[in-house]
Design a protein around this nucleic acid. Structure first.
Lengths: 243, 243
DNA sequence: GACGCCCGTTGATCGGGATCAGTGCGCCAG
DNA sequence: CTGGCGCACTGATCCCGATCAACGGGCGTC
């Protein structure tokens, strides 16, 4: 088993044990690289692009802005995540997508993707698993916003991020780098920035987690998990889910 | 162009103009019928069934229950909707699914579904369109709960339901039958049942919409659309979206 | 160095919606 | 006929989180 190169391959590798051939097939997918500066729309409402992207580095969020100017962030994409896959395959996109940091991304043509799947069918399974996990995340997010209070929501979100980052080797169960401002956090969690600040202070005072200087430090994992009803297996598992 | 039989065919027909051959291929999908009484789990957390269902009649909801007993309903399925497609194809299911009314459903084996797609590839497109619409709905729901107040949320939801029911011929822009209790509504919108009641009263007093005796009557469509920032084209279009 | 701007931070106040408590009605089982 | 139950409905009160207002620090620009 060789070294896994790209974040994308690392992510899929968390679901299916990849052979060398499959890994190189994945790496071939990372064709033309594009760089996006922070704050520029990558995909906007209704646009149906011909290309999707795989993030190589940086963070991206997809959001919707309402008439009164309020913004709701639906989810974030981190290195290894597909971007625009839904809008390409399923042509669904009623919200904007833009980087929150400088982003490097591999342009992926759907044709190439499908060809890769034909060569190594198990990759298709892995991609579907990964996609399903991302979608389950949106559902969890909905449940969070609908039925959890501010503290629980925040804890859940920070754990969720940690779990995803760990998958691609960008963090551990004790902490990770996180470039999100408290304003972004607020629009994600359906709260005001002021209140996010207070909640973060409370979590810090409770000795659960700190979020300062772009760094999340998890001090009491079990406490956080209990507070957020988070499924700890997301954080704990180490090898691929399918042998 | 013959008569469209099943709710499923009607729904797909709203996206793609179907030939006679394609319609009969769809009707062949409606294999073994199953009947589920109200209130019984059809699919529960984590279960990965071999079969999906197409609803022939009745209403179903998928939800998640938190440790403190509160429930968040993620979405509803109505006649013509796929049920468990995600959990079958993508194996995603971290929430329960159960009927809120007595439900008749056609069991669909994935094998049959894929074969049908091979015969008539345009059907695959239609299914993906329909699936993407359902998924966009979940995202809209998230935005609603995160950033709209109780009145706007309720208006949005009632319009959303109306649009979907109209697709399968079960309602019009002036009203539709709706078997949901105010408790179900509350758990859907992330509100308390008490407050849902008050909101419904306000909407009635505003002359916008009434929701009584299992019947939704839309009295001021434009007012509702404005309140909810709802995309009116969902309600207005009549023919298929793709010729 | 001075200014502006973004972001984090804190206090004071307000309000939307939750919660508690209770009524009434239709329906079904006994 | 009667008790029980689920659901619609209403009033009173409470509280979580929004809003308003203000301050400070880092950083880029002129």
């Amino acid at each position: 088993m060789s070294v896994i190169h790209s974040p994308f391959a690392r992510k899929l590798g968390a679901f299916v044990a990849l052979s060398n051939k499959e890994q190189s097939a994945l790496d071939r997918l990372h064709g033309r690289r594009k760089v996006f500066p922070a704050g520029v729309d990558m995909v906007h409402q209704g646009q149906t692009d011909q290309a999707a992207y795989i993030l190589a580095s940086g963070w991206v969020c997809s959001y919707k802005i309402l008439a009164d100017g309020t913004r709701q962030i639906v989810d974030f994409q981190i290195p290894g995540d597909f971007l625009g896959l839904r809008s390409v395959l399923f042509r669904t996109s009623d919200h904007n997508i833009e980087p929150v940091t400088k982003v490097e991304a591999s342009e992926v043509l759907v044709r190439d993707l499908l060809e890769t799947f034909n060569e190594t069918p198990r990759l298709a399974t892995a991609v579907l698993w990964a996609a399903s996990r991302d979608e389950a995340m949106v559902v969890e997010h909905l449940v969070s916003i609908g039925r959890r209070d501010a503290k629980e929501r925040t804890a859940h979100f920070l754990l969720e991020l940690g779990a995803r980052l760990k998958l691609v080797g960008l963090g551990s169960t004790s902490g990770y780098a996180c470039p999100l401002s408290q304003y972004l956090l607020a629009d994600t969690l359906g709260l005001s920035a002021v209140h996010v600040n207070r909640v973060l202070r409370e979590l810090r005072e409770d000795g659960l987690v700190t979020f300062q200087h772009g760094q999340v430090e998890i001090h009491d994992l079990d406490g956080l998990v209990a507070l957020a009803e988070f499924d700890k297996t997301y954080l704990d598992h180490d090898g691929p889910l399918l042998k």
